[in-house]
């Protein structure tokens, strides 16, 4: 009886170890359409959902989607609560000190300002941006007053309510918002920021990073990535 128990326990653990290599937990924010958002059913949806599912298929791993607050998305990766971040995260040198990025799956795409009026003061006014983003860093560099919010949605609301003069975010995020709201418009010139968007992995996990890197490369090669960019991010968004 005892042997039987030990046997089953060992088998269960071996099965666990065997599966552990093929189940990858993908962490995302779920609040950044069209990249990632929660649909009406409450499931993760968007460009990165479709992309991530396809990448997992090509890398021959089973994937599980997890949502996490943007603020703590990197700490939770390095403490192994999930295995990769796929959350519209731009590749920057600062972040690359903590995590390892895959190659980018969107080309470096512009950030843009949106405001209620054309004469919004982008250099000296109050600019809303999401906490811990490259856009927030950029606002500090320009000398404008930065107003930070934990979610992208709140940055837009701040402009509509007059709390901020303008909002800066990825242009791909702002396009549908500006189209939907008559009072919002793009102002100033687009700002090129970051090195494109990539998946982030733990530095101690080069094997997994390699798998996804190869999958992204194969999607770039056969054009499926470009199709997805057109579908979700629009015709104007830069492609490979």
């Amino acid at each position: 009886m005892k042997n039987l128990l030990i046997g089953t326990a060992a088998l269960a653990m071996m099965a666990g170890a065997a599966f552990a290599e093929t189940t990858v937990r993908l962490g995302t924010e779920g609040a950044y359409p069209p990249y990632n958002f929660l649909n009406d059913a409450g499931e993760v949806d968007g460009f990165e959902r479709e992309l991530g599912d396809e990448l997992c298929k090509r890398a021959e791993v089973t994937c599980e989607w997890v949502t996490n607050d943007w603020d703590s998305i990197i700490p939770n990766l390095v403490s192994s609560n999930y295995d990769a971040i796929i959350a519209g995260m731009s590749i920057t040198a600062e972040r690359a000190e903590v995590v390892d990025f895959s190659q980018n799956y969107t080309p470096p795409s512009p950030s843009a300002y949106a405001a209620m009026s054309d004469d919004a003061d982008l250099k000296g006014g109050i600019i809303a941006a999401q906490t811990g983003t490259i856009q927030a860093n950029h606002v500090v560099d320009t000398g404008a007053t930065l107003l930070e919010f934990p979610t992208p949605d709140e940055t837009i609301a701040a402009v509509k309510s007059g709390e901020a003069d303008a909002v800066i975010a990825d242009k791909d995020y702002l396009i549908p918002e500006v189209e939907a709201a008559a009072e919002l418009k793009f102002v100033g010139e687009d700002v090129p920021l970051g090195g494109g968007i990539g998946m982030a992995f733990r530095k101690s996990d080069p094997e997994l990073r390699g798998k996804f890197d190869a999958a992204i490369a194969s999607m770039k090669e056969d054009g499926t990535l470009n199709e997805m960019i057109i579908k979700w991010l629009g015709e104007e968004s830069p492609r490979f």
């Binding site: 170890a17 390095v78 192994s80 733990r202």
Partner: peptide
Amino acid sequence: RQGNDFVVCAAAKLPLSTADQWVH
């Protein structure tokens, strides 16, 4: 501890990374 990373063996993960989402 590898740099910033906290890495334990797969069997020691809590919950196991194979576990269903509800377990997490």
